[in-house]
Design a protein around this nucleic acid. Structure first.
Lengths: 114, 114
DNA sequence: CCTGTATATGCCTTGACGCGCATATGCTCC
DNA sequence: GGAGCATATGCGCGTCAAGGCATATACAGG
């Protein structure tokens, strides 16, 4: 689990990050908001913390987690070179994002009959 | 292998994408440039193709692959909400990226100053 | 057709990771 | 200092994806 990309490959971790984007939260708040078992939350937070995505401060028995920007900026940095490329394709994107809201079924049937 | 994030979690696939960002290339060119076995290249290209990251056209026996923008834009879309949050932390980023230059092989030559 | 080249696919093994569950650690307050 | 809450960690299991290798398909030219 070294690269930032592997870290954000996990849906629950992305959910945690998005939740923390609004403001900082305790473990319990994350647990309730995202409806995942507490050990799961703690484990993901550990991964995120060790990768530098979040940091925590202690408030009595609670631990409050907040975002750290660097790793996500690293993702953005990798993404940047592609931006030039897609400026030409802007409207194709909008159609794409619209389409994939409900369909997660990524099954393509490239049967070539003619 | 459903989400775009899992797709780009694989280093070889990111390498292929980055290579294709410059221009389109055949499978053999990718194979030689990135020095990976041909079946590996084909398998990753299959994944990328089915996820909509690339498309191919046939040129005699060759298959020429080129980028499609939508999935990467999807990543950018997920990343967008965090951007507001970073703006405060800009210089912390530069330090971070500077530090990880030699570990990841990402090229960066930004000089910090104060 | 047959050979060589370019690309794709199938099978197998291996290793990593996420989860559930139980349990441990830590802190607060009475 | 003991009870109770908040969070962390250890363990075992199932799953799934990546790599290596062999092989299959497709196409071009002699």
């Amino acid at each position: 689990m070294e690269s930032v990309f592997e870290i954000i490959a996990e849906p629950n971790r992305r959910a945690i990050l998005s939740f923390l984007a609004s403001s900082q939260h305790s473990v319990g708040e994350i647990e309730r908001q995202l409806r995942m078992p507490q050990p799961t939350v703690s484990k993901h937070l550990r991964v995120l913390r060790e990768a530098g995505f979040v940091e925590s401060t202690v408030d009595a028995q609670r631990r409050v987690y907040r975002l750290k920007p660097e790793p996500l900026q690293e993702v953005a940095a990798w993404l940047a070179p592609f931006r030039r490329f897609w400026s030409a394709h802007v409207d194709a994107l909008e159609r794409h994002l619209d389409r994939m809201d409900q369909s997660t079924g990524t099954k393509r049937k490239t049967r070539r009959r003619r």
